[in-house]
Simulated assay, not measured.
Amino acid sequence: MSAISMAGPSLQFCVDPGEFLAAAGDHLAADPMVSTVVTTVAHRLSAQQADGIAQPDRNWWLVVRDASGAVVGAGMRTAPFVPYPPFLLRMPDEAAVALAHALHERGEEVLAVNGALPAVELCAAELARIHGGRVEVSQHTRLHELGELARPAPVPGGLRLATEDDVELVTEWFAAFMGDADEQAGRPRGASAHDVPDRAEMLRRLRAGRMWFWADDTGQPVHLTAANPPSFGVARVGPVYTPPSQRGRGWASNAVAEVSRRIQADGARACLFTDQANPTSNKIYAALGYRPVVDMANLVIVR
């Protein structure tokens, strides 16, 4: 753990996700919908650490405190893909600017920042000012929460839990997911950096029982929907992937609806992110009853 003090908020960097949750858990739990990405990753990596799975040395967790010591912001740098963008939650403006200077002082190269507005804009702009370069938007995202589920028109087949025997197909579809999403949003394939879990991590996720295929009436998998375990009572759906040859047949709507129904039936709140540039996915989720909660952004610093 390390701390950087300033006249206003102070920044505390943690290397242990468990320590981070102990320090910031009440703050995160107060708005579990907006904090879903950070809390999901923190709980997952904390569990892995307890199982003896080491985390990269570059990982850190951020707790932002005001002058009274109250937690007023949080963030993390745990992305397993280049350029390892930090993910920031809401925090005071001066803290977001101070974070840019703290990262510079720590000798960290930061070429992308994801998360809540305006924190990511302020941090990225200050990093660009310090090091040179300009800030560009890679992706505008929007977090949605499910209200009352509106069931779509039924289609043949049903939901089937993906198992360890499906690891190759699940990995293939995870890899295709981001490239296809870029194309649907009008971006070049590969424009959005994202990780594909390695085989060991994919097997851990499959064993957790949080990935499902929609299988058609012949038993053939035609769609994949996954969901994270609930964190502070919120479960996030994603990724959601249908191969190009199977699109437009209602598989995604029915799969997401059923997974979302199960989340709510278990007593959790269901949420998901959409790419604001992808009208197809936004239309599907709105029709199911998902409503916007907050806008976020993935920013890159071009030098």
Rank of each mutant, 00 (worst) to 15 (best):
D66K: 00
R142L: 09
D66W: 11
L111M: 01
S46W: 12
G52V: 00
E108P: 06
A96D: 05
R65N: 08
A116C: 09
A102L: 03
H144C: 10
H43N: 07
T40G: 09
P92D: 02
V37T: 13
P85E: 01
A50M: 07
G69Y: 09
T36M: 13
A119M: 09
N59R: 08
D66V: 00
R44Q: 12
A96G: 04
Q48E: 15
A70F: 02
A128F: 06
G133D: 08
A102Y: 06
H131R: 15
V72N: 01
V37E: 11
V38W: 09
L62C: 05
V113P: 05
A128D: 06
V64M: 06
L62S: 06
A42H: 03
A79M: 02
S68P: 05
R106I: 02
C123E: 12
T141V: 10
P86V: 06
V113T: 07
V37G: 04
A124F: 08
R90M: 04
G147T: 08
E105A: 11
E126H: 11
H131Y: 11
W61D: 01
E136M: 07
N59V: 05
T141L: 09
H101P: 03
A116Y: 14
V137I: 15
F81N: 08
V137K: 15
A102K: 10
S138D: 14
V64C: 12
H131L: 04
A98L: 02
L99Y: 10
L89E: 15
T40H: 06
Q49S: 11
E126K: 14
H101N: 00
A30I: 00
P118W: 09
R129V: 00
F87H: 13
V38P: 04
L88K: 14
A102V: 04
P92E: 00
P83Y: 05
L143S: 01
C123T: 14
V72Y: 15
V72I: 01
L122N: 15
V110N: 09
D93H: 15
M33N: 06
P83W: 02
A50S: 12
G73H: 09
A54Q: 12
L117C: 11
G133F: 03
A42T: 06
P92C: 03
P56C: 03
E148W: 11
H144E: 07
A116H: 07
G69R: 05
P86Y: 10
Q55G: 07
A67F: 03
V64I: 08
A54C: 03
C123V: 02
V41F: 15
M76V: 10
E136S: 12
V71Q: 04
A67C: 03
E108Y: 13
V37N: 07
A42Y: 05
V34E: 15
A128P: 14
L127V: 05
A74D: 08
R77G: 14
H144N: 11
D66L: 00
